[in-house]
Nucleic acid binder design. Structure first.
Lengths: 188, 188
DNA sequence: GTTTTTGTTGATTGACGAGTCAGTAAACTT
DNA sequence: AAGTTTACTGACTCGTCAATCAACAAAAAC
């Protein structure tokens, strides 16, 4: 039962945060959506914060897996870059709830050290993936380009939360690819 | 007294949100930092939400004024773009508290329509400023470039909150200017 | 010099929510 | 079948906080 319940709670946490648009969700709300009592939620996760962290870990894991999967079938460096972008804006990760939750986890990271650490490893991994793919293409300029691209991806996520209507992954990818194309062309 | 108290409360709100790193600040905390009782805070602002909105409006106003000021003395289009970037990452706007508050206002915008509207007018103004400056330089491609640059600026803000140490405005501006330079060069 | 307006607070109210606990029921163990 | 672990819940505690109120002080108006 335990793994099932925990998974249900993690999903409910993400959904509920996305729905409400803030971390001001009660354990009761989360538990109800997951089909159980709030006491049971407290039984499996010691505290609300643990639930948040588990939800964050889940989103990050999902994203990491998708990137790894896309990289596995990518050929050259350019392909690898495109793979990272596609994974970042895939329907799994770029859906409204997940993006809303993402933004709130960023806030959580400001006050909860463990959340900050989680976000830091995500950033490091993304950066490292980008660097590996960029170095053969732009050499020494890989670092600033990777930093810029990382910020751009986060910014595109950020802007998604304010837009109304369904997420437009294609447009986001197009912007990011535009950024890349210029840098690659500039390096010759 | 009223304007003085209100201003003190607005500043205290921003500082306190930045310090705590979330919107979970009590009216008591804000009032204490502003040197008054929580009852008085409620007297001048009807509710906590009003305080948040006033603080948001203040940050946005500050930013808008700085951009306008920089644009007033800017010569050609390139100068105008640089002015917008410098204002965006000026010490006033790019300080830790303000950036922390900014992120939290983004969250607020997800659930409070008025906050969303405020953020939307900021985005529209930025976009319009960028477009005016970009059109003479890149013509029809102004729109995607402006959207990319807008997202990049937001992303750089976002990444600032996770970094430890003092904000590095110069680095942020450099990244944004790199983005611009390539687009301008690409357009010939 | 009294009335009114403005500024201010301590105490209170009322609601809400995290976490606990005591207890029930079912499933395994021996 | 008795005991033990696991799954689960309703009711409760305890704290917190937004918002209100009743009161007081001081300045302004008349």
């Amino acid at each position: 039962m335990e793994p099932i319940r925990k998974a249900a709670l993690v999903n409910a946490t993400i959904t509920e945060i996305g729905r409400v648009g803030s971390l001001d969700v009660t354990v009761g709300q989360i538990a109800r959506r997951a089909g159980m009592s709030s006491a049971l939620a407290h039984h499996y996760f010691g505290s609300k914060e643990d639930m948040f962290l588990a939800a964050m870990r889940h989103i990050l894991t999902l994203y990491g897996a998708e990137v790894r999967g896309a990289l596995a079938v990518a050929g050259g460096p350019e392909d690898r870059l495109r793979a990272i972008l596609c994974a970042s804006f895939s329907p799994t990760n770029f859906r409204r709830e997940a993006v809303g939750a993402w933004l709130n986890f960023w806030v959580l990271a400001q006050s909860v050290p463990q959340a900050r650490r989680l976000l830091a490893v995500y950033q490091r991994r993304l950066r490292s993936n980008l660097l590996v793919a960029l170095r053969p293409l732009v050499g020494a300029r890989a670092e600033p380009v990777a930093d810029g691209l990382g910020a751009l991806i986060d910014g595109l996520y950020l802007r998604e939360v304010l837009k109304s209507g369904p997420p437009d992954a294609a447009a986001a990818v197009a912007v990011a690819e535009g950024y890349l194309r210029l840098h690659l062309a500039g390096a010759g």
